[in-house]
Design a protein around this nucleic acid. Structure first.
Lengths: 325, 325
DNA sequence: CTGAAAGCGCTTACAG
DNA sequence: CTGAAAGCGCTTACAG
């Protein structure tokens, strides 16, 4: 592997000049040509490692997610990657399926002088707080005292869901979530509950252990008896659809079903799941921008909260009474 | 940020001793304690950058994929991540949705002294060949003259699909693939065609532009008239199911449908898609092992090919005539 | 515009 | 077991 020293020797200039050329700083015409030729001849590739040791930062941002198996996170990764690469940054996706792995990633990113971390797990709050020189942005799930938050307006999303079910003629609806409640789930439920109340709909709530556990008797009973269901995620909506199908309740004839996220997964399904769509690309872009600002010396206030609006995407699992739903 | 120098000063030893402690080399009891205390007190975190500059390699392997939006790749990433982290390596996922981005990633990984690259795109053959000190392993799609290949036995998969359709009573079957043929698609088609022939089934082939383009008239005609379909991917199988559904052909009563990959996506669907399953975790593990061997000075023969076997996973889109299908 | 020199934070022979 | 010193490949003031 050729080094900058080799290039300098071949080009007949100093290493400093080669370095300047590499960093697009002014270099005289003749020097420029000689260096370019030398680089070409040697197949020289600058070492980002050595460069990083001087600059004390590398154009890399880490994205920590609980699992890339969930479409929401893979779409978020793509959005962030797009926004970051436009600015010349690489993004390192970190699939932290355990807290222990998350710690390793945080450590690794910090000691690699990453330009920033975007975290979505809502975990390891204390560790993130110890990061003095690595800016952190929370996306989707917030952390206390850790830097700005960017996420969808989940409360509003819950309200929209309630309104839509109301428009579909529902009177007795049910919210379905995970036993382990996250901040965003709570917000969706909160918005939903409030709006149901003001619209005069009866509103219950059921929770399932996780995405794969079988539905318990209580859950099945509730799902079997209401006329509208708001699932906290499209994934849960899919499962609910399967259950309703299995007991002969037809969607949307007998019961209206609405999910959340509107990821590609929900739209592959037949019928397509009616869903509250997050503007994931907007969320990603916003998070990256905040990080870039921080890199230019901007402040990273832990109080800042950016809420991106959501909207309803009509699918085939709900049927509004009026065309102007 | 504290440096090794700070630690040495606080501990009252030399930097070399701290370094030895960090690298788990023999250090006397008293020194060890003093260093540990100093590290703790300063919140010291070694710089992987500085370390990498000396070692001339970093415990990082890059995984380059054409899109993380496809479940096959996200599952492969998880498998590789699992295997790599067991060995103390991090994996950097690189979503190269354009050739240009792929070049940037290759360059970045090489100049960051990554321990290896696993590529799945079948692109940038020439660039990979120029990588002298970064070992490369091809997964799923091979490259000429670039290092070992690891992938599923697609030819066998094609054969199994044909046998299964035959077991389901099909006589006139159809293979469905993408216009832009990849090596793995060719292999599946080849195995399928051969087995169809020896089983005496009529076998046609149709191709669609890409995963989202609408099905052309010819494709629709063929799909509407055969009694068994082998889609090259689960994703295509899902779309085919939607089309058959829309024209009133019921699966599996009127027509048998089988996909490939058996990713989680196919199993979310109702009915679950019958599919040829790749042992993705085995593929990932194998690729990582080869890379680790290379790191220990092992040879990386471009001729080596590891074929992982596949198997049928019965879903609800086919119906074998006999229970012992 | 350009070169000599010091330094980024760590590691590794080389002597003790 | 331990320390002084050189070096990894680049960048950046500092003088010209």
């Amino acid at each position: 592997m050729a080094t900058i020293e080799d290039v300098a020797r071949v080009a007949g200039v100093s290493e400093a000049t080669v370095s300047r050329y590499l960093n697009k700083r002014p270099v005289s015409e003749p020097s420029r040509n000689k260096v370019a030729a030398a680089i070409d001849q040697l197949g020289y590739r600058p070492s980002v490692i050595a460069r990083a040791l001087n600059n004390k930062k590398v154009d890399l941002v880490g994205l920590i997610v609980p699992t890339i198996g969930n479409f929401f996170y893979s779409e978020l990764y793509q959005a962030i990657n797009e926004a970051a690469s436009e600015r010349g940054f690489m993004v390192m996706l970190c699939d932290a399926n355990t807290v222990e792995k998350e710690r390793l990633y945080i450590d690794g990113l910090a000691s690699a002088h990453a330009s920033g971390i975007i975290t979505t797990t809502g975990r390891c709050n204390d560790l993130y707080r110890t990061l003095s020189r690595t800016p952190v942005v929370c996306v989707d799930e917030s952390l206390v005292g850790v830097g700005p938050f960017v996420g969808s307006d989940n409360v509003h999303g819950g309200r929209i869901a309630a309104q839509h079910l109301h428009d579909c003629g529902c009177e007795d609806v049910c919210f379905m979530g995970l036993t382990e409640k996250s901040g965003s789930q709570n917000d969706r439920w909160e918005g939903f509950r409030q709006e149901c109340r003001s619209l005069g709909m009866t509103c219950r709530e059921v929770y399932v252990e996780d995405d794969v556990a079988p539905l318990g008797p209580k859950v099945r009973r509730e799902l079997a008896s209401c006329d509208g269901i708001f699932a906290w995620s499209d994934f849960l909506a899919l499962r609910t659809y399967g259950f309703l199908h299995s007991i002969g309740r037809e969607v949307p004839r007998d019961v209206q079903l609405i999910g959340f996220d509107s990821t590609r997964m929900g739209s592959y399904f037949i019928p397509k799941i009616t869903s509250i769509a997050q503007d994931i690309s907007q969320v990603g872009r916003c998070a990256v921008e905040i990080l870039m600002d921080a890199g230019r010396g901007g402040e990273l206030s832990a109080d800042r909260r950016e809420l991106i609006d959501v909207c309803l995407v009509q699918g085939g699992t709900t049927h509004p009474k009026t065309a102007t739903g």
